[in-house]
């Protein structure tokens, strides 16, 4: 059992590496694998433009895809354990709807209030800041409310309600918006792992590593939560502290990712289940590295599909993750009769 688990980890890591290289090689301009490797290792590719494309466009995009996939999957795992709910994902606390509200306020609100000047404010950076602030706002509100709630399930419902409220506000904003702004907002909501500068990738990396670091410190408490909150408390685990840090880690991961890449559906919900299925374990010390690898792999694959190899078309990544993720969840439900958490 332990042996086969080790091989499955190696398989996962190997697949991810293959997907990483394929992701760099494929796209509107096909770059042969040998040249991809050459420019990665610092030597000259056959054409100079290939090296440029890889270093300034594809490598940041592939790294973003890995951080996004791994980070969303980890926050999904945290939420499923905290809420003892197999259908919980990184966005149950309203993180994504908060980000939507931030983005909507910037894109559609700025033009309503600031007239012509507002239109110039909308850049990738200001969008990231606005959606990040939106996530943070909703998350802090949920944290304040959660201090008054004893039960994690009530917190789950509060998160969903906040999601509904912010979604309603976005609808009101879009009703009063011009077609141009509406289009810009819709493009944001498609999600994207491209268009990030190296600085932005670095910033995303900081969110990812801090969130992952907190999760590692929580591993023991998360395992105790598998028994239920009451049992965990009798094992000496502090519930309020565990809950707050778990929410914070999720907020950093899901909030940071949504700020830079927009809302990306289903990865966070589906990957923890795939990892449990693959490794046959509930132990978070096994699942944490597994969801990071699996999530990164799946996101790289989704990005490759979205690029439509050898063509100039790019499909919305959010649609691809839903098209891949939703059937996976249905398949898990049907195959195992019920999703046993």
């Amino acid at each position: 059992m332990m042996g086969s688990r080790k091989y499955r980890f190696i398989l996962l890591a190997a697949l991810m590496l293959v997907a990483f290289l394929a992701n760099l090689s494929l796209g509107s301009v096909h770059i042969p694998l040998a040249d991809t490797l050459k420019s990665l290792t610092g030597s000259e590719a056959v054409r100079e433009s290939w090296g440029y494309i890889i270093w300034n466009y594809r490598l940041p995009k592939a790294l973003t895809a890995m951080l996004v996939g791994g980070g969303l999957s980890l926050s999904g795992l945290l939420m499923q354990t905290l809420f003892r709910n197999p259908l919980a994902g990184p966005f149950v606390l309203g993180v994504s709807s908060g980000a939507s509200l931030g983005a909507a306020l910037l894109i559609m609100g700025a033009s309503l209030l600031g007239g012509i000047g507002g239109a110039f404010l909308v850049t990738d950076v200001s969008l990231a800041i606005a959606s990040g602030m939106g996530s943070l706002l909703v998350l802090l509100t949920v944290l304040v409310v959660s201090a008054r709630l004893k039960d994690a399930m009530a917190l789950l419902i509060v998160g969903l309600m906040f999601g509904s409220i912010t979604a309603a506000l976005v609808t009101v904003l879009s009703y009063f918006s011009a077609a141009e702004q509406l289009q810009q907002y819709i493009f944001w909501s498609y999600g994207s792992v491209g268009n990030l500068s190296w600085n932005q990738v670095g910033l995303l990396g900081i969110f990812f590593f801090v969130g992952t670091g907190i999760s590692i410190a929580l591993l023991k408490a998360l395992n105790a939560l598998l028994l239920g909150e009451k049992y965990a408390a009798t094992l000496g685990i502090s519930l309020p502290r565990t809950r707050n840090w778990t929410i914070l880690a999720t907020g950093l991961l899901a909030g940071g990712i949504t700020a830079f890449a927009g809302p990306i559906a289903f990865i966070g919900l589906a990957v923890p289940h795939l990892a449990r299925q693959l490794l046959g374990s509930q132990d978070h010390r096994v699942l944490l590295p597994a969801v990071l690898l699996y999530g990164a792999l799946l996101m790289l694959v989704c990005d490759m599909i979205a690029q439509i190899p050898f063509s100039a078309y790019v499909l919305p990544i959010n649609a691809i993750t839903s098209l891949v993720g939703a059937p996976v969840v249905i398949w898990l439900l049907v195959r195992r009769k019920r999703m046993i958490f």
Binding site: A224, L226, L227
Partner: peptide
């Protein structure tokens, strides 16, 4: 009250007692 995770193996469940 029931266990939160019904998929825990018996040995994993018992090991959690060592926390």
């Amino acid at each position: 009250e029931p266990l939160a995770s019904k998929n825990l193996q018996v040995s994993e469940l018992v090991s959690l007692g060592r926390h």
